[in-house]
Amino acid sequence: MRLLAIIILLIFIAAGIVLGALNADLVGYDLAFARVKLPKGAALLGAVVIGWLLGGLTAWLGVSSRQRRQHRQQSRADKKLPAQP
C-alpha cells in the first residue's frame, strides 16, 4: 500500500515537472491591489496547494471545535458535582 502511494506520488511529481517545463511562459494576474506575473505551471500548482490547504483546514477546524465544546460541557458538569455525603 505504501509502495503504491510512493509510486503515485512520483508520477504526480514527474507530471508536475513535465507540465511546468511545457508551460513555462508567464501569465499575468490582476489581484486588484497588485499585478503579478507567474509561470502557468506555478499557477496550477498554487491553485492545487491553496485548495488542498483550505480543505484540510476546514475539516480540522470542524473537528477541533466540536472537541472543545464537549470538553467545556464536561468541565461544567465536573464543577456542578454534589458535595460528598
Binding site: 488542498w52 483550505l54 480543505g55
Partner: peptide
C-alpha cells in the same frame, strides 16, 4: 482545480 483540491484536502484531513 481549487474546489477539487479543497475537497481532496478536506477528505485527506
Amino acid at each position: 482545480l481549487v474546489p477539487v483540491a479543497f475537497v481532496l484536502g478536506w477528505w485527506a484531513s
